[in-house]
Amino acid sequence: MLEPANRTPTTPDTVRTVFARLRERKPDLREITDAFEETSVTQARLAEELPLVDLGEWSPPASERRCEGVSLLADDLPAGLPATLITVADTLLPVLGRSFGTIEGELRAFGLALAEGRLDGAALIRAVLDRNRLGLAGLAEAAGLSPGVVAFAAPMVLAPALARLASDLAPLLCGASWGKGTCPVCGGLPAVSYLGKRDEDGNEFLVGGGGRKFLVCSQCASQWHLPRVTCPVCECTESGKLGYFRVEGCDHERIDYCEACKSYLPGIDLRAALDPAPAAIAGIELVHLDLLAQERGYRPAAELPWNRLD
């Protein structure tokens, strides 16, 4: 596996810095900044502090299957993952409730249902990973919860748990040949892409062009390499179908779009970026581009809490 492109760690401090400068550079986005700052900081803290996820009997899918594009979590889930999820929910849901006052009660109910086992953690995780909206709604209704609130909150609660798990499982990923638009760990869709820095290989002459494309998972924040001329959503490689645009004067932020499936993905060019935001929340700095892309009729590759602008 290639070294991840963006090595800015996700810590409460680095996340705070991003929000601080977001306020300064893009004051128009205040609503979004206010809504997500505390949640993001807490997520970062949790991802750092969570104990090891108990793997139990879990083993990864056979390596041939992985070469064919089956993610690590496609078949089975580690036994301890639902427990980790509950730990996260305990801390995160109250924070989320403070930012989103209107649904505070429903968030609390969600937490309770999880803790009391009325909502099966494993089934919930599976539904999120499989992007099974109906299944997720069914689980919520069965537990007497609002499907909308669960759909909104479940991925956010799952994120720190998956991030923790992903860093534990990273050694299992090997070879540069993943070649998929979805995450090799959890199967998630990308939230944002990076064009990698010049190769820092200690060579004293040419440092090399860099520009290798990495995707960041919207669920577990893993980073993986995908050839540049490939749509992460439909894997189209036709040059005429793929394009990108930027805001004039901003070399380092872009939207890559695909005419074949009408999807887009915001991206950051690390060769030009001064102080890249940590991968897990980088997308939040590009919301102005989300807006432009959606105005032009493209859909985000992954739905994120802050890119539902309609």
């Binding site: 550079r25 010049r198 820092e200 004293e204 440092v207 062009g209 380092h252 970026a273 001064l274 102080d275």
Partner: peptide, 24 residues
């Protein structure tokens, strides 16, 4: 100045192919 306050590296640093120019 415009570039760095918008999160971009200076133009000379961005273009340098050898690692001579660094900024941070």
């Amino acid at each position: 100045f415009e570039r760095i306050t918008n999160g971009m590296l200076p133009a000379c640093v961005k273009v340098c192919p050898t690692g001579t120019m660094n900024f941070g």
